[in-house]
Each structure stands twice: as structure tokens, then as C-alpha cells.
Design a protein around this nucleic acid. Structure first.
Lengths: 236, 236
DNA sequence: AATTCTAACTTGTTTAAACAAGTTGGTCAA
DNA sequence: TTGACCAACTTGTTTAAACAAGTTAGAATT
């Protein structure tokens, strides 16, 4: 469990902030003091503090000290790179997932433009409906590179695709480019989410990349506007 | 100009990626090679590479190397912490800003809930209309802590508030918590943007913090859905 | 030919040290 | 009292070194 010292220190300080041991607006112990406390070098302490600053928990001021931010970031999950089932655990809503559509297909030039995959790539294309409190609220249209993500099926799609990718296939994900836009409902939205024609939808378009830089997924997550929220923390 | 080596190297490598010197999918020279090239220590090279990885330009794979990501992130500005006038320079649209409303006010409990400022704080409250290609498209409703940001006026608001904060007041900004939601138009939207009742709007709610952790701004940026786009890159 | 193994790469983590530079509080001189 | 200054803090940048750990390719062995 204890392999990376900087990560452990990062977690401990984060816990101390959220539990109020280091209250809002207060100054953290100096880096030198933290070195003594955790018995590590200053570099290791600074790496932990950097992570906390990046997520908006603390801010360091040259010559003065490191301070706890006014408000801890509300939720890093929503805007971050998370799986839906992970986010669901935190939510209080009752959630069900159905997979009404599943196919393999080849990328043509139109689809290449939309998804970012090269023409001729074999994809797994599927649609998932997220039912929140009995209301079909989110339509996820996923495209996975069938070569990079082999063995995909509806059972996996219904549970957690990211669990399959990360733990079964043991692939490492680097990050995702997300674009949010507002667009009218398509016929697919109307069919699966029972929305009216011309109803506006909130759409998250996501290109996800592996550790080695290759794109393995393109997803459009189409949300009913009433329940749509997206959060992120921007530095600098 | 040349003070931080890691930042210079970061910029040089980023330029080499965008110009194609390091093509998509290719492997960067090893850290050791880059050390020789730039005549710096490995730590400094790694710091530059970390920044590039965080922004989605490269990804490093343990034991193999650092690779250029499939696609460079489209635009870091839109989802990042940017000023509107900075973003405008990149856009091709003709943009005008008007400031039809400007007042000082005290925070009551309702406003405290909405803005995150403590009850009793003196705020500067203003509305800015962004006219794109002759169409009023964005309504920015800004609240600034009048003590932290003194001397605000309509002239500044019409030009660039961030230029005033960063260069005139010489304040340093740590980061911002952003929440995106879809909500019906308010009477204010209807009045200034000439939208219909019940028209849905894309809204970016932003809490911005100074270097010392204090919140100095709350802003709701209300967009006509047709032209709304928000981009961000999420790690891990 | 197939396998194992090793040596030489790669990136990842951690340390110790030095100096730069911003902020603070007290001393000392005007 | 006021101001200038300095010493002692703080964080910021950079270096050099060592070891851990993942990957690769060729040598050695079977």
C-alpha cells in the first residue's frame, strides 16, 4: 500500500484539509516542518503540495507559505476523467443501465471526422441508456477501437467498461479531451430518451487516449438539460 | 525573458510538437538526450515534460519513452482560466462589449449562497453583454470583492478586467472552480439578449481565487446555446 | 528454433544541497 | 516616531546523484 511517499503525504494532507485539521484560509506548516513531520525530503513534500494546488485545495505564496483555499473543490469527479459507475456510487439517485444497441463497424470518412479515428479502423459501437430515478436521462454513444479494446460485449457495457479496460485488460489511460456543447435532440435521442423534437440536449464529446498516446474511445454523452452539471477546476 | 529554464524548454518542445518536428505518435528524444541538448539537469527536463503531459501534448510510458499524443488538445483557452478578450483575439468573429449595468452592493444570505462570498461583503456587481457578429450572444454577470479589487469602473469592465487585476493591481490568480449547467433564460437574459421566455441557456458559473486562497470573483457567463462550446483536458 | 537471460536502455521516485527571491519582524539609527 | 536595514524566515528553481522498475534487443543456452 505504501509505495509512493508523495502520494501518501498528498492523501494525508488532503484528509487533514477536508476534516478541518487545517482550516480554510489557514497556513499549512512550512515545507521544512512537513519534511520533519513526514521524515522525507523537501522535494517529496513539494510534490504532494503541487498536486493539492493543482486540484485547488491549497495555494502557495512565494515567501509567505502554503494556504488552504477558501473552499475545497466541490467535486473533482464530474469534470474529471471518471467512469459513470464510479460517479454513481457518490450520487443518491437510483441508476440503471441498459444497452439497447451493439454493433461492429468500419470507419468511413464521415465517421472519421466525427470520432477522430482513422478511416478503415474497426470500431465497436454501442448505445447505453442511463435511467435515473426511473427517468431515461442520459444517452451514451460509445465508439471503441476494436483492436485496442478486444472482447467488448453487452455484459461488460452494462457493468463498467472502465473497470474492464483498466483491470481486466490492464490498460493505462492517459487522459481525455472533452468538449461540451448544446445541440438539438437527434432521432436517436427522441427514440431512447422520449424527448420532443427540437429539444435541446447537453452533450459531452470525449476523446480518450491510452498511455501510449493512441486514441481508443470516442463517446458522446447526451444529457437531458435539467439534470446536467459539469464541474472542473482550472489553474492559473 | 529567459528566467525559468523548465518553462523555456516546455515552450520549445510544445512548438516542436505543433510544428511537426516531433510528429504525432512519435517518440521524443530520451530525457537524457534532452538534458544534453538543452544543457540542463534531468529534473528540469522532467518538469517541462510533466507540464506537457498535463495539457495532453505528450504521454510518458515507463520504460519506453515519451510519446506525442495522437491529437494535440484543440484549445486550452476555452475551458481554461482565460479572459474573454484573450480568447477574442483567437476568434474570427467581430466582438463588442457593453456594460449596461454597474452597482455596488452588500452580500445578504441569498447572495452569499449563490456567489460564495460571506454575508456583509461589499461587492461590485456588473453586467456585460458580448456582441458577436452583431448578435448579443453572451451575458456576463460579474461579482467582485470590492475590497480585494478596488477601483473597478465601467471603462475597465469594457476593456479587460483581467488585465486590470493582473497588471495594474498586480494580483496573482490561483485558479477557478467552474460549473456548467443548462437553465432557462431569466428576465435579465430576455431583456439584454432578446431571447424568448423559457429559452434554455448554457451557463458557466465561476468562482475565482487569488494566490492567497481568497475568493475575489463570482461570475455567471450566460450563453446562447447555438454558439456555446467548452473544452477541457482531464488527466488520469 | 525457441527459450532464457542479461545488459543496456527507458521513465519513476527520492534524497541532499545550494542559491534565488519574496515576506516579516525586530533592531538600530535618524 | 519614523524610516532604513538586516537577519531569519518563507517558497521557487536548479543541480547531481542514486536506486527502482518497466521494456527491449541481442547473446547465450537449451
Amino acid at each position: 500500500m505504501a509505495k509512493n511517499k508523495y502520494f501518501e503525504i498528498y492523501q494525508e494532507i488532503k484528509a487533514d484539509i477536508t476534516t478541518g485539521t487545517y482550516p480554510t484560509g489557514s497556513k499549512l506548516p512550512s515545507e521544512h516542518t512537513l519534511c520533519d513531520h513526514y521524515q522525507v525530503s523537501r522535494n517529496t513534500v513539494r510534490r504532494a503540495l503541487d498536486s493539492l494546488a493543482q486540484e485547488g485545495f491549497v495555494t502557495s505564496v512565494h515567501g509567505k507559505g502554503v494556504f488552504v483555499m477558501d473552499k475545497p473543490p466541490v467535486s473533482l469527479l464530474v469534470g474529471g476523467l471518471h467512469s459513470f459507475s464510479e460517479a454513481s456510487e457518490q450520487a443518491h439517485a437510483v441508476i440503471q443501465t441498459t444497452v439497447p444497441f451493439f454493433e461492429s463497424l468500419l470507419v468511413d470518412s464521415t465517421l472519421s471526422q466525427k470520432t477522430g479515428f482513422a478511416v478503415g479502423t474497426t470500431l465497436v459501437h454501442l448505445i447505453r441508456i442511463r435511467v435515473l430515478d426511473g427517468i431515461p436521462a442520459i444517452l451514451d454513444e460509445n465508439y471503441f477501437d476494436a483492436t485496442l479494446i478486444p472482447g467488448m460485449n453487452t455484459e461488460i457495457a452494462q457493468k463498467s467498461i472502465y473497470n474492464y479496460i483498466e483491470h481486466t485488460l490492464k490498460l493505462k489511460i492517459h487522459g481525455a479531451q472533452k468538449t461540451i456543447a448544446i445541440e438539438p435532440a437527434t432521432q436517436i435521442d427522441e427514440h431512447y430518451l422520449h424527448v420532443d423534437t427540437h429539444q435541446l440536449m447537453a452533450i459531452i464529446k470525449t476523446h480518450v487516449y491510452l498511455d501510449n498516446g493512441q486514441q481508443f474511445e470516442y463517446t458522446e454523452s447526451r444529457h437531458l438539460p435539467e439534470r446536467f452539471v459539469f464541474q472542473t477546476f482550472a489553474r492559473r
